[in-house]
Amino acid sequence: MKWMWKLISEPDSTWSSTIHLLYGTTDIATLSLDDRTSAAFKDILYYRDFFSISINTMGGTQGPVWKWSTTGNYSSASTYHILADPGLRSPYHSILWKLKVPPKVRIFLWLVLLDRILTQQNLMLRNWPTISTCKCCSTDCLETSVHLSIECDFAKQIWTLVRSRFNLSPLSALDLHAFWTHNRTIIDDLWDVIWAASIWAIWKERNRRVFSSRSLPPAMLMAEICATIEAWKRIL
């Protein structure tokens, strides 16, 4: 990238003059490869499609502008950053992976926030034979990640107990992401662990009902959440 940048930004340089002498042009788009082309120059031109979309050619004396740099000048750091960019980022990825909870719980929470856990809704989308209703409440609501975690009558009972046990103010529940991130701005760092342990416990209770036909009342599940929080605080 740097050598191609020199071709268009330093037309009077020895490098540009040499390329013009050898190939009759320094126009990257029209430079053709033949038997005379060295392996090194072929490697340079291999990236010219990306290079072409990375520059803005301005009129006047300003010259070319490198899109990926705040200064408009080429830099290896800006090029590496854009080439190594994984694409769209989750707004919560940077804090989720730092939670002081077991790795498997972090992965589970990531799937919950992406709505990828195997709720009845997602099982139906995969054409698995299943019923659509939630196992944790008596309504006919479709079991989704949001419903199971914060909207279900059973989940609401759990969150009421959580709020009472840890002396929390009323919890807003717009969506799973907002429910977590909004409340972490008004509650201390313990909220992350409380939130994780509660979501994890609700999911395990759901699976207990689905696969074992057993259930725990809200008070016992609350005791399980408290025990989980204490265990995580000791080992993490």
Rank of each mutant, 00 (worst) to 15 (best):
F154M: 00
A29F: 07
W5S: 09
N122E: 07
T228D: 11
K2V: 00
N183W: 09
I150D: 00
S94L: 09
W97F: 08
L168D: 02
M4A: 02
S212F: 08
R214I: 10
G87K: 09
T130H: 02
L168M: 13
F108A: 01
S215W: 08
E230P: 03
A227P: 00
C134P: 02
W110P: 05
L216P: 00
L114N: 13
H20E: 07
D12G: 10
G87H: 06
I229Q: 05
I186C: 14
L111E: 07
N73T: 07
L109T: 06
E224P: 03
P11G: 11
R163Y: 01
R89W: 05
L114R: 15
C141W: 00
T160G: 13
S69F: 12
F41Q: 04
W15F: 15
F166T: 02
E205A: 11
L109F: 06
T26V: 13
K100E: 12
L236P: 00
L148K: 01
L33N: 08
W3C: 13
Q121K: 15
D85F: 08
T25S: 15
Q121M: 12
L171S: 07
T139N: 12
L7P: 04
L176S: 07
S32H: 10
N183P: 09
L118D: 07
W128H: 13
M222V: 07
Y92W: 15
F211Y: 12
I194L: 10
P86R: 04
A40P: 00
E143H: 03
V162N: 04
C137M: 04
I117G: 08
I82T: 12
Y80S: 10
V193P: 01
V112Y: 04
W203G: 04
L88S: 05
K104W: 11
Y80N: 03
T14Q: 09
R89G: 03
S94Y: 09
W15V: 02
W3T: 05
D153V: 02
L142E: 05
D188N: 15
S17Q: 15
Q62A: 15
D153Q: 13
D188S: 14
L221A: 05
S164M: 09
P103M: 08
W159N: 11
L113G: 09
L33S: 12
S38G: 14
I107D: 06
I199P: 00
V193C: 11
T18Y: 15
R165S: 15
N183R: 10
Y92K: 05
K2P: 00
H177L: 14
I19A: 07
I186S: 14
W128A: 08
D27F: 03
M4T: 01
E151Q: 08
M220T: 06
R106Q: 13
S212V: 00
T71Q: 11
L148G: 04
V210P: 06
S145N: 13
D175T: 10
F50K: 03
S138I: 09
I186T: 14
I150W: 04
S78Q: 09
L176N: 10
S13V: 01
S212I: 00
A173T: 05
K100C: 06
T18L: 10
Y47F: 10
I187K: 12
I158L: 09
